[in-house]
Amino acid sequence: MNEVVLYSVLSIGGLGTLAAIILYFVAQRFKVIEDPRIDLVEEKLPAANCGGCGYAGCRNFAEGIVKSGSLDGFSCPPGGSDMMKDIAEVMGLEAEEKDPMIAVVRCSGSKQEAPPKTRFQGLNTCAFAHSLYAGQSGCPYGCLGEGDCVVSCSFDAMYMDENTNLPVIIDDKCVACGACVKACPRSIIEIRKKGKKDRRIFVSCINKEKGGIAKKSCKVACIGCSKCLKECKFEAIVVENNLAYIDFDKCTLCRKCVPVCPTNAIQEVNFPPKKNRKKEEEKSTEN
């Protein structure tokens, strides 16, 4: 009995020792020396692996920063500038202040404004609908309403509004990672400056068709009439291909362009409702 115990202890122990020695040499031979700062930077990152930075994951992003030794061109949308400051500390660099950004849906073609003219059946993804036809309203630029963007959002910051059939972005949750921008086959969603007090003004349409045609499929389409262009004193608006675009770096949020738009294609967000109320009153008296 004792012999059995002895032999098994010896043989198993011997095997273990042998394996340990082999492993030691193998580990020495294939040792990878990593910059310890990679781990430190990675610790600071949100670990969402959203890909908003352009890297495959947070680890790759950290490696990229350490490798280049500077923060130029690196930005982590979910972490924001506070986190970048932390990383700068780790790296011994200065972080530049960046404006917070947010995703914006540039289409207001709801069921009511752009009534459906056909009925879609089949695979319920925007990618397929886009490859199949122009869209229920007939607008070849408008939102298809199948919600590929909502599926792509890893922060639960989007949902489909059932009344309008348009995606809605929840301001507090959106980190501007840009996943929805990539998911949208029509590039309707844009990453824009969050703005002071979360106030934003943007043209909620990307239809490049001539005014008349665009109007046919959607009541709130930008018709490229250039009225806003004339109103803007800061050269923040460009009209190209029958479509107005507001540059968020130049826009001062003066709101002058909003009331002049004949189709209500320019949208303002989070402004005090004073002017809005006035406009609504006008509308109701008209009716």
């Binding site: 056909t118 122009a134 007939g138 045609i213």
Partner: peptide, 10 residues
């Protein structure tokens, strides 16, 4: 001019 084709695109 642009005309709607079979798939609805112009």
């Amino acid at each position: 001019d642009d005309v709607v084709d079979t798939s609805g695109y112009r």
